[in-house]
Amino acid sequence: MRNIERRPRSVGDIGIRVVILSLAALVLMALQLTGQLRPLQSAIALFTSPAQVSATAVTQNVTNVVSFFVELRNLRQRNAELEQFNSSLLAQNFTLREMERENESLRDLLDFAQKRPGLELRGAQIVGLAISQESTNFLDSIRIDLGLTHGVKVGMTVLTDQGLVGRITEVTSNSQSKVLLLTDPTSAVQVVLQESRLDGVVRGSAGGNLLMDFIPNNREFKVGEAVLTSGLGSRFPRGIPIGQVVEIIQRDIDFSQQAVIRPTVDFRRLELVAVVTNFDPAEEVEALAPIPTPNAAGTITGTNGISGTTGISGTFGITASNGVDANPPLTVPIPAPGEGAP
């Protein structure tokens, strides 16, 4: 067997290794930045995606098991027999629960699509939660299982029924893309406060909060106001919920006010997202208001990572026959994180 014991330290020996490995890292970096690593990355993604999907599923199940046992401990104090029954039942139905929850998310997305007939949505399962999601603490992004073959392009908007998630920043392969989350410090979205109609820019900030900046001074707005995409800059469709003002920051020395925003999307529990495939970032589309027009048609499809593919697709019409105004003012309910779809 190879002698793995520490040999006397040789600065030159370590130095050579460091230089060689650093050069290798720099070459890799240069190749990636010039795009020459893309075929290799696509090939690697083919092998690593199944591992990530499996690990995500296992993680989800472990989380469910841990949550389950925490709840079980409390409930046992009140009803030991009932909890015992529940534990066996839940253990048998983990797979079913997973599918049920995904179906629920898809139903919410379907409802979301129904209210926005102008958007063509494509459902996606997040392949890797972390990168972090990006794997580091520095960048917030996720990978989804949609890529070139699904018509996904850089810049496309990604959302859930609860609100804006981010945008596609890289289409890594035929079946994978990277999404920069709204919470990433490098992201910026033009927004408008729903009631006071003040414009601003929402940025992610280190630590996971959202910060709305460049709100004009001497203009009043309230805690609790909903924050929506404004459509300015044409990078995101107009009227997508982002969050709710929870704190106003006003300092005499600043030229503008700031607000801390609580996002409507729970970014730590993202499972299903939808990609808006028909919004050209350079040209704002019409009919983005969340209220459906009569006889509107929408389509949403989705994949289920547990048992192959389950899809919901269809065309649905809505007719305003109950006397309700078909085009009321723009009002978007802002659920607190954790409410609504899981």
Partner: peptide
């Protein structure tokens, strides 16, 4: 880490 994360390749290495 860089393969799974999607950050600049080689950055985590360095």
């Amino acid at each position: 880490l860089d393969i799974f994360s999607g950050g600049p390749m080689g950055s985590s290495c360095l």
